[in-house]
Write a protein that binds this DNA or RNA. Structure first.
Lengths: 114, 114
DNA sequence: GCGGAATGACCGTTTTAATGGACATTAAAG
DNA sequence: CTTTAATGTCCATTAAAACGGTCATTCCGC
């Protein structure tokens, strides 16, 4: 990741927790970092970064590690339609394939956490 | 990501869905790729990769994009203790800080999806 | 205690992501 | 149908991830 600009604090914290949880899950299974790294086809040094919640590590690495732990289901639901409260207010069937300036309200705001 | 070895198919599919969902969420908000990229402090070309579920893109980028969409809460719960069915069977209070060969069963298996 | 495996921290090298343009294509608005 | 912004693609450059090896430290098991 090219983090010249700052990373949102809530995001940073979320990633840190994710890393900690991954580490905890590994310990519960009594798997060494070396073995985990082998199973995930990554270097032990990379696994360290993962367990620290390093934002620069690729999603592929995180996902594979979670898969090894048997915790990769939730990844697919991260941005699932059902979880998007903003989207539910719109006519799902008439979603444009492209965005174009229209007469409708400019946007639907709601960035950060709801 | 250094994908000399193959990436687990279920994972690959999950990431593809994630990318598609992100794109759908953007369209619902009627935000252009250019604007999204600006808000997430990334290049438009990188956002394309994100919307394709590219495993090589860093988690930080994905997380920031989700944050901009207001969908970053679930990240922290990806590997939360409550979601780890394997871990619940162990004595949480006596988790070792390191793994060492013990008399207990070697491991608790259960990789892929339950 | 002691021994030693496991972890944490560093670091130089190699591979790759992320960028920011340019150009072709597409589809929404009028 | 025409217009034209938005999207899709491709690409050279550059910044950074991922590697793998070493060394110090920690703490589990004996």
């Amino acid at each position: 990741m090219r983090t010249t600009p700052p990373m949102p604090l809530p995001v940073k914290r979320a990633l840190a927790k994710l890393g900690a949880d991954i580490k905890a899950a590994r310990l519960r299974r009594r798997i060494t970092t070396t073995l985990m790294a082998e199973r995930a086809f990554i270097a032990r040094s990379t696994l360290q970064k993962v367990e620290q919640g390093d934002p620069g590590v690729s999603l592929g690495v995180y996902a594979t590690v979670l898969f090894v732990l048997g915790l990769s289901e939730r990844i697919a639901d991260l941005a699932d339609v059902g979880t998007d409260s903003v989207g539910l207010q719109l006519d799902e069937a008439r979603l444009p394939q492209r965005v174009r300036g229209s007469k409708r309200p400019k946007e639907y705001s709601s960035a950060g956490q709801p």
